[in-house]
Structure formats: C-alpha cells, structure tokens
Design a protein around this nucleic acid. Structure first.
Lengths: 219, 219
DNA sequence: GCTACGTATTTTGTATACAGAATGCCAAAA
DNA sequence: TTTTGGCATTCTGTATACAAAATACGTAGC
C-alpha cells in the first residue's frame, strides 16, 4: 500500500500530446500552419475532446498559439523569438553547468569523456547525425547531474521551441568546427569541476549558436 | 484588415484558468488538496469540459499535479521543490537584471528610485503589504525593461509556484531588514547600469530568500 | 471587372452522455 | 479484531451533440 503515485498507463491525450509535439518539433507541421481539431482528431482516430486537450497542452508549452474562436496554429519562429529564447536557454544551461560541476561523479566524468570522444570522431567523419546525438547526450548528462527536475523541464520545453529552427538551418562547417572546440572547453571545465567556468562556457556556447543560426536562416 | 490577431473576449476556460490560478496562488486551495472536477465545475456554474481544460492548463504550469484516472490535486510544496525552484528563479532574475541594466531609460531609473523610496518607507512604517507591493513593482520594472517576453512568462510561471510558500511563511524582522539593504544594492547597480553586478545581486537576493524561507517553514 | 452584402458551410466552444477505472463500504471469514 | 472479497458508488476519460462565431462563397449592385 504505497503512498506514492504508481505509474499508470498513459491516457489518450498524453499520447496525443507526445505525438503532436514530435510532429511540430521535427518540422512535419510547419511553423504558422493552422491546426484543425477535427481533421487531426480523425487522422489520429480519436474524438475531438482528447485532441483539444493535447493542443492546449502544447499551447501552454509555447509550441502552439491559440486565438479564441479562431483555433490553433503551430507557433511561428521569428527572429525575435530566437533572440528572446537563446539568452534564457543560455542562463538555464549555465545554471545546469554550475550545478553539475559541483555534483558530478568520477564515473560521470568518464562518461563525459567518452561522449566527447564520440563527438570529436563524428565531426572528423563528417557525420552530423552522430555529432548531434553525442552533443545532445552531453547536454543531457549535464542536466542529469545538475539534479534539478524543475530546471530540466523548463530547459527541455524551451529547447523544443527552438529546435525547429535548428533543424531547418544546416550548420556551417566553420560553426561546426568552432562548436567542437567549445566542447573541449566544456569537458575541461567539467573535469576540473569548475562550476562558474562551465557555466560561462556553456552560456557563450549558446550565444554563439544563436549568432550562427540567425546568419544561416537570414531571418 | 489587420493581419495581426485582434484581442477577442476571453473564452470560458481562460477565465476559469485565471480564477483557479488565483485560488491556488493565494492559498485558498491548500497544497496537496484534491481537486474534484465536478464539484468545481458546479461551483463555478459551468460544465466539466472548460473546467477540465483550466485544470490541465494549470498542470502544465506546475500548479496542479495530475494522476491518470485519479484526478488532480494542488501541487504540494516540498522543501525539495523550493530548493529546486529558487536557483532557477535566481538565474532567470539575474538574466533579467543584466538585460534591464543595458536597456533601462533615464525615466525608468527615476521610477525605480521612487519605488525604492516607497519600499524603504513601507519598511520603516512596518507596512509589510506596502513593502510587498513596492517589491513586486521593482521586480516587474526590471522584467519590463529586460524586454524579453519569453523570460517574463517563464519567470512569472515559476514565481507563481513558490509564492504560495512565501504567503504561508511570515518574513522575519531580520530578513526583512536584510532584504531592504539588498534592495539598495539593486538600485545602485541599476543606476550604474552595471548588468553583471545587478545580475549577481539579484541572484544572491533570491538565494537569501530561500534560506530564510526554509528556516521559517521548517520544512 | 470589382466591391459589398447576405447566405451557407465550417469550425470552435460548451454541454451532455456513456464506459470503465478507482474508491469506499459492508459483510463474512480467519 | 483484522483481513479479504465483492458490491455499490463516485469520478475520470472519451465520445457525441448542440449553439454560436467565423469563414467561404455566390450573387447583386455599381
């Protein structure tokens, strides 16, 4: 007789929320595209009720914009949006880095080294897909060792909103090389357990991403 | 024929969301209290449908926790929650401060001075209500001049989650005095348009709040 | 040909209905 | 007394129904 909430099977609208979120983040639904409740519900083989709840959940996350009596649309990505989101991302990642540097274990540093090696190797091979995976894994590792669930949720929510832009814009070779170099600094700061330095490096890392992204997208 | 979304009258569930949010933030619904859809809907004189949407919106904000097939409850405030939320609050406020210091106008600094004077006077008068108002207004001013809508929304959402705890715990005289002193530094950094300093001061300000809060609540 | 107006259709917002899971209660057995 | 099983009730999750607003379309007027 546990007092803790036991994991239940996810309800329909939760599944729908996940599916729809993926569709938006992966770019299958273009920014600005109108979302028709009925049509979507039919496509997923459900009624409008759980579909509505999913759409509204994503609206609270910022992936969807609602206009009363006019329906929902995939949130557009403007240059202003990116210029707003990235500083916040930077501040949150910096915090994650500071915390992670304090709390990371030896084993964790080992994992970070492995991931970093894979990241460098992928870059050498010109394997952007592999690079992206290693990159995501490193940021995830930092988040995990930061050990702050609130921070994790906010960061991932915000990341989902800008990832769409990153998918759209291919990285430039120069930016890619620079990012790899920055990752060396990230690893170094982590190994040294230097929180403030790791925070600063991550923040700069993200600021650089924005600059390059805006250039590429020419927004 | 404007292309921009014109303001429409708010739909029922939007109003319900606001009402319910206030009830939770102001403490009328105690943390951990179970929320009965039917009962709430009847109390507000609406059907379950918009009531559900309101509840779920607040769940995405973190004010309500949902357990599938078991319903909703006001999110409890644990010590761990506060210890997670405050560092994030600090990082976001620090960012707001950095941005505001860069962008604030002369008139804005003037307003800040006025608000600060009111804050100090309220403290001298032992008027905590007035102090709170001035305090909120100063933080709001910083947010406004930061000019980052994304940041504003995330900060306010997170603030709503911890405000409940602050309402519960009366401030100690010592902490109150210290907070007033810290506010002098905040104003000074703002007048000097020293972003990094303002960021650091705000971050410390919030860290101190947490310490005192945990002592008072004895969580 | 273009605009303006009125009607038909679509779509959202809300209410109601129904099915199944969770909870509470009571009785019977150990 | 405590526990266990089953039944009744309550509540959530989903589907459907209905009303009103928004949109699309066609026609009349210029």
């Amino acid at each position: 007789m546990s007092l803790h909430a036991t994991p239940r099977l996810p309800t329909l609208h939760q599944q729908l929320t996940d599916r729809l979120r993926r569709m938006i983040v992966e770019g299958m639904l273009a920014p600005g595209a109108k979302i028709n409740e009925q049509a979507l519900a039919e496509r997923f083989g459900v009624s409008r009720t759980p579909m509505r709840e999913a759409i509204r959940a994503l609206a609270t996350e910022g992936l969807v914009v609602l206009t009363p009596r006019r329906g929902a649309a995939v949130a557009p990505i403007t240059r202003a949006d990116l210029e707003e989101a990235f500083p916040v991302l930077g501040a949150l990642e910096a915090l994650a880095g500071e915390l992670a540097a304090q709390r990371i274990t030896e084993a964790g540093i080992g994992t970070a080294r492995d991931l970093h090696a894979r990241l460098v190797a992928s870059h050498s091979d010109g394997d952007f897909r592999g690079y992206s995976k290693a990159n995501a894994a490193i940021h995830r590792l930092i988040l995990d060792f930061a050990g702050n669930e609130t921070l994790t949720r906010m960061l991932q929510s915000l990341d989902g909103r800008v990832r769409r832009a990153r998918v759209q814009a291919n990285i430039s070779p120069e930016r890619w090389a620079a990012a790899v170099a920055e990752h060396a600094e990230i690893l170094a700061a982590l190994e040294a357990r230097d929180g403030p330095r790791l925070g600063a490096v991550l923040r700069q890392h993200i600021a650089n991403k924005l600059t390059s992204l805006i250039e590429r997208l020419q927004l």
